[in-house]
């Protein structure tokens, strides 16, 4: 082979090294684009999902809904005696180690200034709290109140405390 031939082969080799890298990047970008488009087609708003999940807090007697002695359940009526951390863990308990990458909630009875949070709630909220107009059964009477539910969507890791 002449010097020109060697130069030609060398030039092609360098070209294909660069082209392979660019083709690899383009293929990865193509896959990301397709997956992103698929995600857009199938996306469900977080607010819709949380609306269904949080219904249980006010309608299910195994959570906080009031149930009288006859077994009748009163939806949107909170039994104050059930509004405890232990009851919350029975109603909605996320994985202790990785539960931060699913929905977590903080419930606040506005009039009573009482709050309960799920076990992986770290106050990383992105949208306005959900609100339910509820009645509270305190053991003697029904009292009007508002239940505010702050929503924490999936987070990538547990937030660290600043200064610690």
């Amino acid at each position: 082979m002449s010097d020109n031939d060697v130069f030609e082969v060398g030039r092609k080799t360098i070209y294909w090294m660069i082209a392979s890298f660019i083709i690899g990047v383009l293929m990865i970008a193509f896959v990301i684009f397709i997956v992103g488009y698929q995600g857009k087609l199938t996306a469900v708003p977080g607010e819709l999902k949380t609306g269904f999940i949080t219904l249980r807090f006010v309608t299910n007697p195994d959570c906080f809904a009031y149930q009288d002695a006859t077994g009748r359940t009163f939806p949107y009526t909170i039994d104050l005696s059930k509004f405890t951390k232990e009851r919350m863990n029975l109603c909605y308990l996320t994985d202790p180690e990785k539960g931060y990458n699913t929905f977590n909630f903080k419930l606040t009875l506005h009039g009573r200034d009482m709050s309960l949070a799920t076990n992986n709630f770290f106050n990383v909220v992105y949208y306005s709290p959900l609100g339910y107009a509820v009645l509270i059964w305190d053991g003697e009477k029904f009292i009007r109140d508002d239940l505010l539910i702050e929503v924490q969507e999936s987070i990538s890791s547990i937030p660290t405390m600043k200064g610690s």
């Binding site: 199938t42 469900v44 819709l48 999902k49 269904f52 999940i53 219904l55 249980r56 309608t59 299910n60 007697p61 809904a65 149930q67 359940t73 939806p75």
Partner: peptide
């Protein structure tokens, strides 16, 4: 997605 939301809705039903 739909069925997961349906399960959550059924959990919320008292009966």
């Amino acid at each position: 997605e739909d069925l997961a939301m349906m399960v959550n809705t059924l959990v919320a039903l008292p009966g």
